[in-house]
Amino acid sequence: MIALEGVSKRYGGQTVVDDVSLALGGEGVTALIGPNGAGKSTLFGLVGRLVRPDAGRVTVDGLDVATTPSQELARRVAVLRQDNHVAARLTVQDLVEFGRFPHSRGRLTVDDRDHVERAVAHLGLEGYRDRFLDELSGGQRQRASIAMVLAQDTRYVLLDEPLNNLDLRHMGETMRLVREMADVLGKRVVTVLHDVNSAAAYADRIVAMRDGRVVADAPARDVMRPEVLADVYDTTVDVREIDGRPVALYYG
């Protein structure tokens, strides 16, 4: 379990995460939703050791994030990030191999290579392994990053806005991959999503944040209600049932 106990983070005078207590990383997929500036990414940063809390404690499987060696945590939690610009020219294979760094510090063993091969195969990247990242399309680069996260072989996977800059087809593809990570590989996935409908369609549980606080935390269907969403996003949202699925309509 990833547990946050009374965690707060302030930037200047502004409280971005306000006394949040939350357990993440149950089975399946958990979606973290909320308006811009709600504190979702900061929350991820707190779990991923990029942001230090001003108050409270974050633990992963009982290990305090503040005091546990980074390498130990990197074997338990993998984080997929967006828009990460790399100055050097790397191939897909190089990137995926980096996923094994927490396990072997860069000296790949037979076991590491096995993990890399499987991750590459899972994502269907066999034909691309020697291509440079800057020669790939956004969707392909995304798949290479996901392969790296899989090669890291962690129990928990955090995805920070994995649908950013993807077209319809790649959005669907990515969310199906996320679903399969949880169902087939047994990973506990937590993902920040901006699209409420993607969250409703693919997540088991939705945690909604607003102004640095958790305002809803329930099975996806229970969060997909007009009054809940209106409260979270501070705008009117209509929710209709289409083929048995709740769909939010927010096109004023």
């Binding site: 991923g48 050791r49 990029l50 060696p69 980074s70 390498q71 130990e72 945590l73 990197a74 074997r75 939690v77 993998a78 984080v79 990030r81 990460n84 610009h85 790399v86 980096f98 996923g99 760094f101 927490p102 890291q152």
Partner: peptide, 10 residues
């Protein structure tokens, strides 16, 4: 790979 990814990799 940049600070965020490097931290994520331990």
């Amino acid at each position: 790979l940049g600070e965020p990814v490097a931290v994520g990799l331990g």
